[in-house]
Design a protein around this nucleic acid. Structure first.
Length: 682
RNA sequence: GCGUCCGUAGCUCAGUUGGAUAGAGCAUCAGCCUUCGAAGCUGAGGGCCGCAGGUUCGAGUCCUGCCGGACGCACCA
């Protein structure tokens, strides 16, 4: 870990600036710590002298030289140099650095842990059909976010929102009852004997077609929705059954990817427990919403939309809204408004979301009841909300009321998420709004090749054919199901594992193939910027070569093998080697022969904490993916160039082994952050 | 119309709060398995960083305009 050294260097430079140039903390000089492009130039560097050049009317190089001369000794630093171009470069004490990273000698104290809780909401798949590739992107990002926050010491609560009362579930209920003519027992038999999420996937597509055949049939949907909302059986019972079973399918699918949750929040409970009613009171009391009495929205409770939402006014435009009374001139609806409660008295999706968000931020003054729903991947109770007061209340951890909330939802929801934030401000909680983050990401589409493979080729002369990718459509049933993708990639991994490791037991082969498949899928989902549309190509995702999850795993497996062989052949453990380093000259690490690659690996491996900080700051996981890949690349280069087992010089092999030991520790951590396990062999 | 995002090598993409010679993977070509596992390594070719201005000691990165593309702006969720 490198950040404590950043801080130490930065503090010392700051002290020199204050001392020598009378530039205190209020002078606004930011001391940026970077990494010089090569290790011969230094290990850490700062361009601070460039910043000061104008202010001090001096050449950057001269300033850098002055600072370097005034710094004095810094613990853990071998020397500081002013580069000819004005950079101030820091060379670390390599031996001490590596030994302290490995715990052989005491290191710097760890940063204090965060204590505030964060809620991460992700997945939130409509419980009416199988998960597809787009959902996988959401869940992988959300799960990684949770892991990254926890890595920094923050308690995290992962929630999965279940929309069990919307039209999507209603549509499948319509299919069950009107297309299939089934009752609850009938659908239960099917659920018990088939891939139920796949069954519903197809049924849902058929219902969509059925509606298209005669618009009058939409009345059936409306009636079904009404029955679900009012708990009228048998419709409500069937809807409840479907949602429950599909959610369990989703949990299994996500579990295959090492993704799980602490709490399932059911939308139905938000309504039944009057969360909305309470939120509505708050919204009315604070004037955040008001009853529109005229115009086309007459009879609706609406929220005025802030200017900066509609038009990107850079300035705050104080007191712009001034709702209601004035009544904007006639039909010109200058003042834009968002309907929260429809004229028929029902609440919109945004309203429900506001109630949910108020609860998440601890501002609602109500709580759910909780029931055990299942078991998490690590054997804890997976909780779900409930209205049932007699359910097992005891023993559940406190839920909700987080200091920070992250909503992982695709970019198309940006507008609504912004409204949500605005609502928090409107009810008097700007701080909570500040700490509400919409973690947005772009869509997953299909490459033309993959769409063709799935039997969907847009007509050659159509607009679709000219686009760079083909859109996924859940309604038409067009898309790659998450489980199909996983099945295929694991099957392929298994063939590869079998070819390479004939002696492996079937169980080990299976486990290994699953680990590799997960790595391939999860790395693929992480390696692109979240602002980029992924044109999903099945062959590309299935590839295990080059920049891929398995490449990272393979590097760790190789490193593990070295230590295994050391143990087998010479009875040496990593601990033995580390102990022996205390009185071994560190020429190998110091690069006395002009080769700094071993040290470069150590320094790069230590950057994980710095990378994680950047990841959290930018919410950009491609940074983590690239870091892991680059680290693995450095190791692989060294692996071919600098042998350990076959190295005769004791000092060389020991320091190489120590560096590799640190490398595998750090890369394994990177993989863990991605939710990827390292198999014993592959 | 308004807003958000994207445009970097043949293809797919990185590029850290502006910094040192713009980097990977795939594809192509040439090499490397008797030496810790070749899911690997080494090397080569391939770039008006969409275009034009501006700010700066310094711009792929920030600002303005334009061009091209995606998405959003419902009494749908």
């Amino acid at each position: 870990m490198i950040l404590p050294l950043h801080d130490r260097v930065r503090d010392r430079v700051r002290a020199v600036l204050a001392d020598r140039y009378a530039l205190g903390d209020d002078a606004g000089v930011s001391i940026v710590i970077e990494y010089p492009p090569t290790r011969t130039l230094g290990d850490l560097g700062t361009p601070v002298a460039f910043d000061l050049a104008r202010r001090l009317r001096k050449a950057p190089r001269a300033i850098a030289q002055e600072i370097a001369g005034a710094l004095g000794a810094i613990e853990g630093v071998a020397r500081v140099e002013a580069a000819p171009n004005g950079y101030l470069n820091v060379f670390l004490d390599r031996r001490t650095f590596l030994l302290s990273r490995l715990g052989v000698v005491p290191g710097l104290p760890a940063a204090p842990a965060h204590t505030e809780k964060a809620i991460v909401e992700h997945t939130a798949i409509n419980p009416n059909k199988a998960a597809h590739i787009g959902h996988v992107r959401n869940s992988c990002l959300g799960d990684t976010l949770g892991r990254v926050l926890r890595f920094r010491g923050m308690p995290v609560e992962i929630q999965n929102y279940i929309d069990d009362t919307g039209v999507q579930v209603a549509d499948v209920v319509v299919g069950v009852r009107h297309l299939e003519g089934l009752d609850l027992d009938g659908i239960r038999r099917i659920a018990d004997t088939t891939r139920f999420d796949y069954y519903c996937w197809d049924l849902y597509a058929r219902v969509t077609e059925w509606y298209a055949g005669d618009k009058a049939r939409l009345q059936v949907r409306a009636d079904t929705l009404h029955d679900i909302e009012h708990g009228t059986d048998p419709v409500a019972a069937i809807a409840g059954f479907i949602a429950d079973r599909i959610v369990r399918c989703h949990l299994v699918t996500m579990g295959r990817l090492n993704i799980d949750y602490d709490l399932l929040t059911w939308e139905g409970d938000i309504l039944r427990l009057q969360f909305w009613a309470r939120a509505f009171e708050v919204l009315k009391e604070t004037g955040a919403v008001f009853l529109q009495t005229e115009g086309r929205l007459a009879g609706c409770w609406v929220m005025p939309i802030e200017d900066d939402l509609a038009a990107a006014g850079a300035e705050a435009a104080p007191a712009a809204p001034a709702p209601a009374d004035a009544g904007p001139a006639g039909d010109e609806d200058e003042q834009r408004e968002k309907v929260i409660v429809r004229s028929n008295g029902t609440v919109t999706y945004v309203g429900k979301d506001m109630a949910y968000q108020l609860w998440k931020s601890g501002l609602l003054g109500r709580d759910f009841h909780y029931r055990p729903f299942g078991t998490t991947l690590d054997g804890r109770v997976l909780w779900a909300t409930t209205t049932d007061t007699t359910a097992a209340e005891a023993g559940h951890p406190p839920f909700g009321a987080a200091a920070a909330t992250y909503n992982v939802i695709d970019v198309r929801q940006a507008y609504l998420q912004k409204l949500l934030k605005q609502a928090l401000i409107a009810v008097g909680h700007p701080k909570e709004a500040e700490r509400l983050t919409h973690f947005s990401y772009e869509m997953v589409a299909l490459s033309h090749a993959t769409a063709r493979e799935l039997g969907y080729a847009p007509p050659a002369d159509s607009d679709e054919a000219r686009k760079p990718f083909v859109e996924v459509s859940g309604r038409k049933g067009l898309g790659v199901k998450a489980d199909d993708l996983l099945d295929r990639i694991i099957e392929k991994a298994q063939a590869e594992v079998t070819r390479r490791n004939a002696a492996l037991s079937p169980e080990d082969r299976d486990r290994t193939a699953r680990a590799i498949g997960v790595a391939a899928v999860r790395y693929f989902m992480i390696k692109y910027s979240r602002t980029k549309v992924i044109a999903f190509d099945i062959d590309e995702a299935l590839s295990f070569e080059g920049e891929s999850g398995p490449y990272l795993q393979y590097a760790v497996v190789r490193a593990n093998n070295i230590f295994q062989k050391l143990q087998e052949r010479e009875g040496l453990t990593e601990a033995d080697i580390l102990r022996s380093l205390l009185d071994t000259p560190a020429a190998a690490l110091d690069g006395d022969d002009g080769d700094h690659d071993l040290w470069a690996l150590v320094l790069e491996a230590s950057r994980l904490d710095d990378v994680v900080e950047q990841v959290v700051r930018t919410l950009e996981f491609s940074v983590l993916a690239k870091y892991g890949f680059g680290l693995a690349q450095m190791f692989n280069g060294l692996y071919h160039k600098s042998p350990i087992l076959n190295e005769e010089r004791q000092d060389l092999r020991r320091w190489r082994a120590a560096a590799v030991g640190y490398f595998r520790l750090q890369l394994a951590r990177v993989l863990e952050l991605m939710g990827v396990h390292v198999p014993a062999r592959m």
